[in-house]
Amino acid sequence: MPLACSQLTVAYGRRIALQDFGLALAPGEVRGLIGPNGSGKSTALQALAGLVRPQAGAVTIGGEPVAALGRRALARRLAYLPQQPAAPDGMTVEQLVRQGRFAHVGLFRSFGRHDRAVVDWALESTGLADFADRSLRELSGGERQRAWISAAIAQEATILLLDEPTSFLDIGYQVEVLDLVHRLSQERGVTIVMSIHDINQAMAVCDRISLLEKGRPVFDGLPADLAASGLVEQVFKVRGSFVPLASDALPHFDVELARRRTGVSAA
């Protein structure tokens, strides 16, 4: 089991951000974390990445407790990408992606042939090979997000944690990121946990889905079972329903909007 946790509880001061969170991932699994804003998705990812210390429970990687691994040893096995990360001024795409190799080269070893090949592969598979020398600041939001994903996959970790990798991207880039997630899990056996807001995208891309409400897990299972459970409408407090599209496809979640548009347009 590449990544697992049970009874995980994280508190910031008195506020409990995550309570009794459990997860057990199969190799190559893509897991979606969904839930309203502030439901503990980011906290769960940070705890899984060993960045916040849980008050209770433990995270294990391949059976080993995360807390016992050094930062570099952990980074070789697990890569984590926060929401909207910031890079130092003037840094180029390639310089960012090279940071992903730190887990392997450390403070002293020089960059070898394999390290350079991995950096090229990471740039290539995010479609950034032509952007290598561009400053991150010159890039569009979607390109920048891909550069960060490129740096994360240059770590060659078998576990990838992505915090809302598609937020703030237009639909074209969203699809590109989700395609990349799918390819990484299928072709390289990478185990992926990502938080995501679009429920239909989550159902389409993820093997299993965890639903959080106010820091507590309320669902852990297959996308089809989530659709049947009625929990989405209840947790997100929306009126909506899963609409069947075709007999072999997952149903599509549609919400009812309170205001129905009339033909009158504003001046």
Partner: peptide
């Protein structure tokens, strides 16, 4: 020069 969380997940003992 990165955010502490980013530096640590790249493998740095921050």
């Amino acid at each position: 020069q990165f955010d502490p969380a980013v530096a640590r997940s790249f493998g740095l003992s921050y």
